[in-house]
Design a protein around this nucleic acid. Structure first.
Lengths: 219, 219
DNA sequence: GACTCTATCTCGGTA
DNA sequence: TACCGAGGTAGAGTC
């Protein structure tokens, strides 16, 4: 990884066009060829960047970075204040716990948590507008489409509505009920779900996880 | 801006839980208090980060970063390889051209690009569920609600559907047609739009811009 | 402050 | 490879 601090202007042409007037900034060049230009603020997002793979043509006063997608970044360097490199080596990577996928896993393993008698038909049940998280049958044998979210928002209701629209066109399934499952459901999502006849179910990830065997835990 | 290169492990507890095994990484501390931990690859996104405002408790071997939202980042430092600071100063900021707003501007200036005979009624036409990008009348005088996107996805179709639902409740307008306009329209969005009776129209920003007067260009 | 929507989103999974 | 959905989305604008 190479870290350059320089007074520079930057121009990007690609998915849009963008320009940075002259100022002192940090230029980060990673081993995989990605380039990011940072100001001293604005959280982790750089002002400008190029994703790999890149080709860099480095003149003393002008770096021209291009990639196969036809994007181009031009850095005009007025003054270099620092230029150092470090060998970082590979990274073992990040391990996450508590995302939607884990919640979906737990619910697929035991859908009766959602309601007594629920049985799983399939995870990621396909429709023309995308896969439903869980397709279940209730105790009476009726189909239920389940959308799993970490946080239930109107988005999730819309998504589930789309699926139901298409699932209910299938004579083998209809009528299909909808159920939005999340650790937390926003009031607006609840109102919309009610209006659409979709049920809401709040679950607790850590509680579910506590009742499950060790092999579903990451750490 | 402070740049530390160190062999470290990192643990985050907050909106989820995440863990990084020991490796050499770059830690970027910005003037606004944001912290980002980078590996030597993976585009511009850091492995782990904390957005401001943060409180940092810096022991030699363990940094504890907390914020008011109850998130916590713990960096255990095994070895510091480099630790430097640079004064960057403020940044004049980025100027962009080619985002959705510009596309909307061009189409508002000449809606006949969408279809022969289209006239603009209003930009950002208000409804109870938010403003429609463009409200037009076609050659026959019928109302058309236009949603403008850079990339047309199912989201955009949902958004337009909501507007149409409310617009069609207005006797002065109904019946209102829907049109999704974008530089690129995804297959799923097309399927959904068809199912809802919404038309799709692909436009080219740079071509439109080329036919427009100078004053709509930023640089 | 909460809500809404855009984004050069990034990233991972999958067909 | 392209498409699709999740994200600790971040960030900007509006109310």
């Amino acid at each position: 990884m190479r870290i350059v601090v320089a007074r520079c202007t930057v121009d990007y042409e690609g998915r849009l066009a963008a320009h940075l007037p002259e100022a002192v900034r940090l230029i980060m060049v990673k081993a995989d060829g990605s380039i990011a230009i940072h100001a001293d603020g604005g959280a982790y997002k750089p002002l400008n960047w190029m994703n790999p793979p890149n080709t860099v043509n480095e003149d003393p006063e002008c770096w021209t970075v291009t990639n196969p997608r036809g994007e181009k970044l031009v850095i005009n360097i007025a003054e270099i204040l620092s230029d150092v490199s470090h060998e970082l080596g590979g990274d073992p990577g990040l391990r996450k716990d508590g995302v939607e996928a884990h919640l979906q896993e737990l619910l697929a393993a035991d859908p009766s948590v959602l309601e007594e008698g629920y049985r799983l038909v399939r995870r990621e049940y396909p429709t023309a507008v995308g896969p439903v998280d869980l397709l279940c049958r209730d105790a009476a044998g009726a189909a239920v489409a389940v959308e799993v979210k970490r946080r239930g928002e109107t988005n999730g209701v819309e998504q589930l509505s789309r699926y139901l629209e298409f699932l209910n066109a299938d004579p083998a399934l209809q009528p299909v009920q909808g159920m939005l499952v999340a650790e937390e459901i926003k009031p607006q999502a609840r109102v919309l779900a009610d209006a659409r006849g979709i049920r809401c179910k709040v679950v607790d990830y850590s509680a579910l996880r506590g009742t499950k065997p060790e092999d579903l835990r990451l750490f």
